[in-house]
Every structure is written in structure tokens, then in C-alpha cells.
Amino acid sequence: MCLAIPARIIDIDKQMATVDVGGVTRQASVVLLPEAGLGDYVLMHAGFAISLVDEKEALETIRLFQQLLDGMPGDDSGSAL
């Protein structure tokens, strides 16, 4: 339905930002996400930032995965992030 990728804002000038995805950069509009600022991770869809990536929530989700992994008997293959 909609491909959106976490991208980091590395430059911002009013409604246009430069975003970076793993070494690939492009211009992205932040007109749909006025709260976006320099250094933020945003979800980019078709050249527009559509949502902030919530770091706290992301870490919480990962913590749950890790808990599940730690709870596995006899499995110590889990690695911390």
C-alpha cells in the first residue's frame, strides 16, 4: 500500500529537507510534518516526510523482543542492539 523508509534529516530549509538513508540522500518535503527538525528520523514516502520515528517506542519494542529472547531456555545467541 505504501512503502515508507526511515530517513534522517541532515539539512532543513523551511519546507524542504535533505534526508539520508544509509548513504543515499535526496530532497524531501516536510510540508506534511511541520514538527520535523534537523537530526530527526522520519518515515519518508514518495519524497515526503509523513511521520516522526519515535525512538523511545522503537527501543521499547526491541526491549520486548530481547526479553522474549532472554526468556528462551538454553539459548544464549541473543545479541544486544
Partner: peptide, 14 residues
């Protein structure tokens, strides 16, 4: 489940 990408009120500006 997708708590890192979705706000409770979505994106009002969009």
C-alpha cells in the same frame, strides 16, 4: 504494534 511509526492521532497536518 507499529508504535514507533504511528501517533495516536495520526498525522493531522497531512
Amino acid at each position: 504494534q507499529y508504535t514507533r511509526g504511528v501517533r495516536p492521532d495520526g498525522n493531522p497536518a497531512a
